[in-house]
């Protein structure tokens, strides 16, 4: 059973990304949206936990519109995180068996 997890809070503000990662398993995808896009940046305190989750087979995506809205360029994103648009978000929701929003 694959799950798309959406995280909309910055990991520097709330612990929802960590909670999500403690439950996301192999075959799941974590999509970072809204303020959650901050978690996708390289060289932060959240980077290690994202790398660890990638090692367990969790995939990562980030919403490009929300990166741009915050002035964050794609070259500052951790390698291996794919940048998607809203159509990509819809596709991810369709491709997984269910969607879990971490609010």
């Amino acid at each position: 059973m694959s799950t798309l997890h959406t995280v909309n809070k910055s990991p520097f503000e709330r612990n929802s990304l960590d909670t999500c990662l403690s439950l996301a398993g192999n075959g799941s995808t974590v999509l970072l949206i809204e303020d959650g896009v901050a978690g996708a940046l390289k060289n932060t305190t959240a980077t290690q936990s994202i790398s660890d989750a990638m090692g367990k087979g969790v995939k990562f995506a980030v919403l490009g519109e929300d990166l741009s809205a915050r002035g964050l360029p794609a070259d500052r994103i951790i390698d291996g995180i794919s940048v998607v648009d809203y159509t990509g978000f819809v596709q991810l929701a369709a491709d997984h068996d269910n969607v879990q929003s971490w609010l």
Binding site: D66, Y86, A93
Partner: peptide, 20 residues
């Protein structure tokens, strides 16, 4: 309030545009 209402709208719009 924050952004959730906008995200929901954009998702819904994209889903409809993609034939869902």
């Amino acid at each position: 309030t924050h952004q959730a209402a906008d995200t929901a709208y954009q998702f819904t719009k994209a889903a409809l545009e993609n034939g869902h």
